[in-house]
């Protein structure tokens, strides 16, 4: 695979064209993140279970490059799959995913994302070799982290 094909794997192309979890509704608590260099934008919401302990859904809207948009879509897909399997994330689970994702993306290709844990989102491992694109891939995940931080501060 050429470097370019490692970056733009078919899964990423598919998610950027047909994004999952797209669409916010009135009342969503959102975090708006943008990459001022290129204008990528993601606005993301975490939809919590009635008791407020688990993430049942990740919803988002945005515009920008295929990496930023596919990453948000893959993040929403991962949350939905884990929720469907009865493993909806606690705040700690979510923070662990964000930390692992960031570590892998900043590893310059040294640490791949665990396919068992990340599913299709593991396709984003290829981004870590493209330093200028890491910020694009992180956008949705940073939005989720911002929501977690704000939630903890309000608790």
């Amino acid at each position: 695979m050429s470097g370019l094909e490692q970056l733009y794997q078919q899964i990423i192309m598919d998610h950027s064209k047909s994004p999952h979890g797209y669409g916010l509704t009135e009342g969503d608590v959102t975090s708006h993140q943008r990459n001022p260099v290129c204008g990528d934008e993601v606005t993301l919401a975490l939809r919590w279970s009635a008791d407020g302990t688990r993430v049942e859904e990740v919803a988002w809207e945005g515009s920008g490059c295929s990496i930023s948009q596919a990453s948000a879509s893959l993040f929403a897909t991962l949350a939905a799959e884990d929720a469907d399997a009865g493993n909806a994330w606690t705040p700690d689970d979510l923070q662990a995913f964000i930390d692992e994702f960031r570590e892998a993306l900043r590893s310059r290709g040294q640490i791949p994302l665990d396919e068992e844990r990340f599913g299709d989102a593991a396709a984003l491992s290829g981004v870590s070799k493209f330093v200028a694109r890491v910020k694009c891939a992180m956008l949705a995940w940073v939005a989720a982290e911002d929501l977690l931080t704000r939630r903890a501060a309000e608790a």
Binding site: G64, C65, C136
Partner: peptide, 21 residues
């Protein structure tokens, strides 16, 4: 195609061009 993605295709063949606003 977003400019960031277009620029990546050029970078892949050694062409340094600016992307963004």
């Amino acid at each position: 195609v977003h400019a960031h993605d277009a620029g990546q295709v050029l970078d892949n063949v050694g062409i340094a061009a600016r992307v963004g606003h």
